[in-house]
Design a protein around this nucleic acid. Structure first.
Lengths: 237, 237
DNA sequence: GCCCGCATTTAACCCAAGTTAGCGCGATGC
DNA sequence: GCATCGCGCTAACTTGGGTTAAATGCGGGC
């Protein structure tokens, strides 16, 4: 049941049987969330951690007047609120599709970390990759123009969905609206739409009905100045 | 010698004598870096970690054409390249002032984490706060206008320098140029200068010669829509 | 099969911020 | 004491992207 998590961890660090066993013991009845529901709520001080098992979700902060910044998109296997282990949540995580999440009491998680310090390091490592993605997004929002930013995001999304086994090749379900894209990119919805049409017009991709199809990977990569190194996908420990 | 680190950790988690002892054993002859030198280099796969002991530094990514995004500023006590424990560095860290850093071999650090899992969690927690700051910056760069962005940055800097014991009250050394500020904020140097004058003209702050003086804290905070919650400074474990 | 609501698209207009270029000034060096 | 360089500052002009508002789908509920 926790196989998405185990697959993610095992990509970098071969797990010992005892460690795999300890992970399995985290499993319990998953909780379901409908699309649009909050999996994690800003201001909350959770007593358990949520591990995404199926579906897609996104992390976001919203200002008083409604302006919103989406900070990341999430695929199964990812722990959504590590932050809640140590402090109050300073942002929310919202379900993009119907989701299932394992809800793991903090004491259980901490006990596992203390019994298997290497697992703590493995989770920490996952967390560091998330930080690397934040930094790349900052670079994009701060220093790239809208065109490169949109292209870059689609490159990243395709690669990450593929790594999560949610795409074979050039096609993937990515059920976001143009408003979601805008909020992730720091653009207005109107301008996102303009850029999208440009990318479509150049035959780089198609994106509609929540399905992304990349038709010219090299072209899209060039348009987004995309270098996947920051995703640290093929780096063994 | 590692007192800045111990102070940071102890802010949240009272350390046991054995843990404090284990930390002390990390100490060694610190390495010196002149202002402008790279403490950590993008593309590097370090064999040791650098812990900032004195001075200020900043983390940045730079595009091929020279556009640069500064991702964070750092004060003594912070581990600058946790990422290097597990993967290649995808960005650099550069000294703002002359700096001293303890250079700690990875095996020594990992051994400490395995012997004292609670210390691993404490370092992880520090790392999570850094991630929270990244997210807040993303929100600012993506969704706040230049005026609020500049004000917000100065609020954050003052609070963090104060927490590091580098400021009493409203005045602090923050030795950056307006170009550094621009690169941190995703603005041009010219526009940063315009906003700076506006803030000065409103009597909110003065900033010259690398010294920040906040003259109207409430006003600055309002200008930057600043809420320090995301810094998680006063949250015990 | 019609209505409603959300998402996408278009068009017209506007403005915040970028760009370029040049000046002044203090610190550094010879 | 003079040239140099980095940094702050100013002004004039440009532009990428925001705003507003209205039209066009389109899918789901009943």
């Amino acid at each position: 049941m926790l196989s998405p998590l185990i697959a993610l961890l095992e990509r970098y660090m071969p797990l010992e049987p005892a460690e795999r066993q300890a992970l399995q013991e985290l499993a319990n009845q998953p909780r379901r969330f409908p699309a649009g529901a909050d999996l994690v709520l800003e201001g909350d001080r959770p007593k358990e951690a949520r591990l995404l098992l199926s579906g897609q979700a996104f992390r976001h902060k919203t200002l008083a007047d409604g302006r919103r910044q989406i900070m990341s998109f999430h695929v199964p296997g990812e722990l959504l609120d590590v932050q809640g282990l140590f402090m109050t949540m300073d942002h929310s995580v919202c379900a993009l599709t119907p989701c299932e999440a394992a809800v793991i009491p903090h004491p259980k998680l901490v006990a596992m970390f203390e019994a298997h310090p290497r697992l703590a390091l493995a989770f920490w490592r996952m967390n560091l990759v998330e930080g690397a993605v934040f930094r790349e997004w900052m670079l994009g929002i701060g220093r790239r123009d809208a065109y490169a930013r949109v292209a870059h995001l689609f490159c990243e999304v395709l690669i990450r969905l593929r790594a999560a086994g949610l795409s074979d090749g050039a096609r993937a379900a990515f059920p976001v609206t143009q408003q979601h894209l805008s909020d992730a990119l720091g653009l207005s919805a109107v301008h996102t739409n303009r850029v999208l049409q440009q990318l479509r017009g150049q035959g780089l991709l198609s994106f509609s009905g929540g399905e992304l199809v990349v038709m010219d990977w090299a072209g899209l990569q060039a348009a987004g100045e995309f270098d996947p190194a920051y995703l640290h996908l093929s780096e063994a420990n």
